[in-house]
Write a protein that binds this DNA or RNA. Structure first.
Lengths: 253, 253
DNA sequence: GCTGTTATGCGTAGACCATACGCAGAACTA
DNA sequence: TAGTTCTGCGTATGGTCTACGCATAACAGC
């Protein structure tokens, strides 16, 4: 029940203060040899090169020519580093939608932009998410997504839900795609062979009497053929946008 | 280029053979004191009680009164144990849709069933997925989902894509909900206070000029009010089903 | 310029973790 | 009964994160 004199509103965790650049350096003491952005950049470099599993405090420190424990002067725990990595890993949002775009074109662009980021930074998918977006870049993405829906008659809460739906879809699709890529690397087979091999394995395991619908899918050759992943992505995205469109029409009526 | 004499089709990894009960015990040697299902059950018990992070090989062994290394006679690596945990953690699928259900009611039931499982076994969300579903229970869920779409005119590949869309959504929604729950436990605040606190924090961080759309969402009180999570779930699910419905109508025409 | 304060770099060490390896002994076959 | 094979599990290795404490560098005030 200590009467803490905190008139500054809700407490902001140090990790988030770091991300927003709100931490001012105390004037005393030796000059820091490192900085939070330097450390985060090094960690991102490691993740880009060798995946998220390679990001250990010692590895990042080695990347910087510093000692492991030196990092803890800048970052209170590894989780904090991960959070900052996500922020810089996503990078700046694609910007507000061009004026000639309607909401659908805008959100399509928005979704593809995230898709693109996740495609060549798949380690972002492996960082355990610990809460709603709060870092600057992430809120930037959110802002740009909301702007796409500015002209619609959706309620504010519905806009948020719609965006949540889309990001969730993009992340999910990216997760599946990157799993196939990682699986092919692990098994040492060509990326185009992963799904066919999967299909053959399922075919061997299931009893057609117990799994008739699944059997039908297999005999239709759905898993055997090697689809363009971009088509798959477009398909799901269009379904979701169709669903949102139906709601927008209803609200506009 | 070794001429491996393997006429049994694709190689099935040991983990999957375990899951399908295809591993026959050799007749020699001492009788095993443990079994794969016993170990998996113990691991699930630990995860239910203390979360996935508590599932270490030594902890599971302790649960069974066995030595750590004893487990490795039944499971080749921890990843294999995790895979088997997911299979039994999901449990049996909800079964084929009742005859009076159309595709939409069937899939709604299907989605809620998964939602229910993930709600009280949120550790399932933290198990890193390593590939497409291949274990018996998971294929059972897939089968039941496909059956809901039996009577529609969708192509087999479209049925799969539709189900993927729905599971992805369910998992995503469950992830967000469980994050809020974990966040409230970690921060020691009431679950209903998490989103309002988040909203206040965002409000403090963002500049309304730089984030106008987001600012509008905040002033609309979207994050402040404490929604029923089930309503949120229903909203997204209905959007996705609307999107699938649009496609079904197009295919039926 | 000197002194006190404060922050930095980082070495050490502790508490975990997964798992490779090898050995004693049990249960079967011949 | 001898040989084979598999089980249980002790030991050890190399990895993880991070709490703690010490020497030192840089500033503030006198």
């Amino acid at each position: 029940m200590a009467a803490k004199t905190d008139d500054s509103g809700p407490v902001i965790p140090p990790a988030i203060e770091s991300a927003w650049g709100l931490r001012e350096r105390p004037p005393k003491g030796p000059r820091p040899g490192l900085s939070v952005p330097t450390i985060v950049d090094a960690a991102v470099r490691v993740a880009d090169a060798d995946g998220l599993a390679a990001v250990s405090m010692s590895r990042v420190a080695k990347e910087l020519g510093a000692a492991t424990m030196a990092l803890y002067r800048y970052v209170s725990a590894k989780d904090e580093l991960l959070m900052l990595m996500v922020d810089t890993g996503y990078g700046p949002s694609p910007g507000p939608p061009p004026p000639e775009h309607d909401w659908r074109a805008g959100l399509t662009r928005w979704a593809w932009a995230e898709h693109e980021v996740l495609r060549h930074r798949s380690w972002l998918l492996h960082v355990p998410i610990t809460g709603p977006p709060i870092t600057p870049q992430q809120l930037g993405w959110l802002e740009d997504g909301l702007r796409c829906l500015d002209a619609t008659a959706l309620a504010e809460g519905e806009k948020m839900s719609a965006l949540l739906l889309i990001t969730g879809y993009v992340r999910n699709e990216a997760t599946l795609t990157s799993q196939i890529a990682e699986g092919s690397r692990a098994a040492g087979i060509a990326p185009g062979e992963v799904m066919p091999a999967y299909g053959r394995m399922v075919a061997r395991l299931i009893d057609p009497a117990r799994f008739p619908a699944l059997h039908r899918v297999l005999t239709a050759g759905v898993l055997t053929q090697d689809d363009d992943p971009d088509d798959e992505f477009t398909f799901g995205l269009d379904r979701i946008l169709d669903g949102i469109e139906a709601l927008i029409h209803r609200r506009a009526a």
